[in-house]
Design a protein around this nucleic acid. Structure first.
Ligand SMILES: [Mn+2]
Ligand SMILES: [Mn+2]
Ligand SMILES: [Zn+2]
Ligand SMILES: [Zn+2]
Lengths: 147, 147
DNA sequence: CGCCAAATGCAACACTGTTGCATTTATGGT
DNA sequence: ACCATAAATGCAACAGTGTTGCATTTGGCG
């Protein structure tokens, strides 16, 4: 059987989520799906603004808000205080292991370890997201300085 | 025995760290020591700018940088992407348990659970900080809406 | 005291994100 | 295919956070 389920098109995902299908939303969601790591607003803007008419800065913010609001993208703040966005689907394949962020080069590495279980909460508390953030320097950035 | 070691004065800590003792640094470090949770720049500014001549905005940024650089304060980004600072000492008493951040009211709660051990890293990687971030809504914010 | 590097104050700036409002567009109903 | 309408867009102006340059002041030290 050579035909697995084909990945759903961004336009269909957007429609299914109950949002209007616009060129901006499709292009942004495509970019997020293609990305290897969460992208910030500036990265998306330069990446999408290249050819074409390009997306307006404010519209890009609103497109991202819309995708997050409809559950198609995730928003998280990075160590520099900048929001980064990722396609929701892309997240699932990275949900079962820990990530390591290199403070030198900014790279993200997948570790072969399961994330720790969420702790027990006091009565009445509701659990949201749990994030296990491991930072340090990768092999390349830790290598002895070769000046 | 009624005399335990008295807490060292901010001025002494600053001097011992090898930094000039200035009024701004002392006041900021005092504020950080007195605080129950990490403070952001704006909170410190309004808290210190009250009486007195008040600290200049830029100077406050540089004072905080200096304290962090000398190991007297810790800098971390909050969920909104704003940097928050805490006195280094205050951190140690919170190093052995997990914290819960309420996305509703912004409150920080101490949980009775140990932080998970750091994962094994690939060869050459150097471990920096490990952060176990648990978010959700506290009992108050999770309570049934009483409109 | 007097020196001097370091710290401060001030102005101007850069980056990230938001708000208001007029115009355009996607979509459902005819 | 057309129209009506609510939603999305583009543009300008703004707010919050953090930085840089430079002249002035000040802490620490001989
Ligand atoms: Mn991964
Ligand atoms: Mn605690
Ligand atoms: Zn690296
Ligand atoms: Zn709360």
């Amino acid at each position: 059987m050579a035909s697995a389920t084909p990945p759903p098109l961004p336009a269909d995902l957007i429609r299914a989520a109950g949002a209007k299908v616009t060129r901006g939303r499709v292009r942004v969601l495509e970019a997020l799906h293609a990305a290897r790591q969460p992208l910030c607003h500036a990265e998306l803007e330069s990446q999408l603004g290249a050819g074409e008419p390009g997306i307006d800065r404010v519209t890009l913010y609103r497109v991202l808000d819309s995708l997050v609001g409809h559950g198609l993208a995730l928003k998280a703040v990075d160590t520099r205080g900048v929001f980064r966005f990722s396609a929701t689907g892309a997240q699932r394949q990275h949900a079962s292991h820990i990530h390591f962020r290199c403070t030198g080069c900014g790279g993200v590495f997948c570790l072969k370890a399961e994330p720790p279980p969420p702790p027990k909460l006091p009565r009445g508390f509701r659990l949201g997201e749990v994030e296990f953030d491991v930072r340090g320097t990768c092999a390349g950035c830790s290598a002895p300085d070769r000046a």
